[in-house]
Amino acid sequence: MLTKRIIPCLDVKDGRVVKGVQFVGLRDAGDPVECAARYDREGADELTFLDITASHEKRGIILDVVRHTAEQVFMPLTVGGGVRTEDDVRELLKAGADKVSINTAAVYDPDFVAASARRFGSQCTVVAVDARRRHYEGTSGHERPDTVPPPWAGTYPELLVNPEDRTGWEIYTHGGRNPTGIDVVKWCRRMEDLGAGEILLTSMDRDGTKAGYDIKLTRAISEAVAVPVIASGGVGSPEHLLDGLTVGKADAVLAASIFHYGQYTIDECKYFLSSRGVKVRS
């Protein structure tokens, strides 16, 4: 039986892990390769690097990180962050990434996803989606920034939200700052049609809160598409992983800080999930 996947995510900037990984016993907790090896030993099912390197000149560093990781860790590796061109995808795959996740570039040019899927295959084309609720629960006074619509907004109005309707979720870019006017459910279906092999779904409302995944969002997308969905954003406990996989119907769960700070090991989370009837790899 296919098992649910647990995927630790490492934010990498200029070749170093940020968001303070605090493993006991690591020589260098800022070294992504060492962290990857640690997660490999702990039984992670996959690994994700999110490259948040800002400067263009330093973008090549992630390729070295991927190369060194692929020499030591024999598990599936997804790399995302700043992937803009087919060459970016090719370089990452050549360095040893198994999947590449595309976020902002997909919003501005959906055909990039189609081109990547055609050239490299759907199996390595992940679309990362940053979503926010249209109705801000319990965040009164939250000022909605101005919408920055994608260039194709006029051509595909059917993918946009209805401004009158305050239900559902909207795609944001730039780390959750810029609303795009794109409806998340329709967008994920469109990405699937264009060849995305997997959706990495992050709730920007929950990201960093430790309040748990946005379960309604996770379930809405999991039910809307036929490709696997990875839930992301908001994990603070193993119960949150359980909710994402059961109520949220996600195929995989991504988490960062609960693993980095040694709060829970991946083994502990798997033991808990298994005790609640979720099939995980032992």
Binding site: M1, L2, T3, K4, R5, D45, S122, Q123, G197, E198, E223, A226, V227, P228, V229, K249, D251, A252, R281
Partner: peptide
Amino acid sequence: ARRTPDMKIPHMGWNQ
């Protein structure tokens, strides 16, 4: 063939 809505394609992940 997708037998159930929970059966996602690609078949992606760890299986026995």
